[in-house]
Design a protein around this nucleic acid. Sequence first.
DNA 1: GACATTAAAATGCCAGACAATTAAAAAAGT
DNA 2: ACTTTTTTAATTGTCTGGCATTTTAATGTC
Lengths: 248, 248
Amino acid sequence: MKIDPTSSKDLSAQIADAIREEIVAGRLIVDQRLPSESELADYFDVSRPTVREALKRLAAQSLIRTQRGATGGAFVNRLRFEDAYDQQVTTASLLLSMNAVSFDVACEARYALERACAPLSAARRTPDHLATMRAEIHREGQPGLTDEAFCASDVTFHRALVDGAGNKVLSYQLAGAVEAMQPLMNMITFTARSREEIIALHTMIADAIEAGNADATESALNALETYTRELAHSVVTARASKSKEKTA
Amino acid sequence: MKIDPTSSKDLSAQIADAIREEIVAGRLIVDQRLPSESELADYFDVSRPTVREALKRLAAQSLIRTQRGATGGAFVNRLRFEDAYDQQVTTASLLLSMNAVSFDVACEARYALERACAPLSAARRTPDHLATMRAEIHREGQPGLTDEAFCASDVTFHRALVDGAGNKVLSYQLAGAVEAMQPLMNMITFTARSREEIIALHTMIADAIEAGNADATESALNALETYTRELAHSVVTARASKSKEKTA
DNA sequence: GACATTAAAATGCCAGACAATTAAAAAAGT
DNA sequence: ACTTTTTTAATTGTCTGGCATTTTAATGTC
């Protein structure tokens, strides 16, 4: 575990990399205590603030946690799926917004991944998952629901579908795809007419899942994807003609 | 953009959260320069080292980059897919190794996601993608190839398949699933017999992709998943009986 | 034995300084 | 007037040393 003082990288980045490598390689195991900041400073021959910067980098990735007090210190953190969700969602959202990813591309990816969960969810979903889906469908029919609340309900519905597959790895992977889409979805304002249509499609999905029918689930998802993309296109077209009016 | 001095969280964590929120919300845009460390220290009423710790946290997530010199400073970084790949792979690997995720669960997730790419890849793959797949199949047939090199080739093959879908978001999402599996796959030692079988299945996949046949691609992937899981089970069984021998 | 006090160890935070780097401004030379 | 060199200023990178806070363990007291 060594660092190169002539490297162009920050010392704190190098130290963080070195420690991260130890964790990934399994030479530092979960809940193991790292040497104290002073000891690390001595070991790497740098000052304590530099070590601290390195440790904060690792903390930002949830690789370590710190505890104060006599028996405190930095400990290798068990990376939990829940912790990783948030980072996944943040990262995915920024990737979409910063790289000019089109709605179509994002939508295609999302529904492709979701269809991958459909057969598993149709086979394995618990009554709980189904109940969540039904509850969200009901919520979506409430009059006076804001667009934001409708979108949030949509996300909950789809997460129940995904979680129904009973595979934590899948749920984690899909978290980014589903939740990162929400800001984009929010850009589509839902008319009463389109809400009705979406609720109908959600009901088709829930029915197919309840019946354990994988094919029906897939085709319902296909229909939902098609409709979502059409909706987005019509919104874009409407905006374009409106801005044309303005310039004219 | 405020912090709460009575919070239990580190000041540097709070400051990082505050700035991250600004970035996610789009109030700080790509390539925009943040105030200097001294200015941030004044603004948040903390010392410069504390601000620096906060900035290192953001740098660890590739949200900012720093530049030294007169016109230097911290700039909002355009999060690129390539940057996110690495983090995705590291995170996914640690999730698998630290949460006792079984080979079956990980494998199921991986192939479910990969099947989602199959129809798109069959329809859109370029000659390049196909050439990569063929080249890797050829490499896998070379005698004297180490297990590690075989696994690496396997990863390249599957990434070409995924990239063939021509959807960056899908490629990004799949990077974690495919590459994080490599350490687990490495645990399976490939006999000459099983390599032959895998090469045959890879060829089936490449043929199906070349023919633009989505269904054939899917069923070839299914066969590969089944075979991989059987292989893993036989390895586990063999190890169990071997350790039994030892104890006996 | 139960409780209060003290000591020690660790992280959290700060002040101030200097080094290194970079770009712009100023000066010098032609 | 133009080019080159030098200086200067701004900014991050790093260090030293210190104090505050938190937590546990040891110690002392009743």
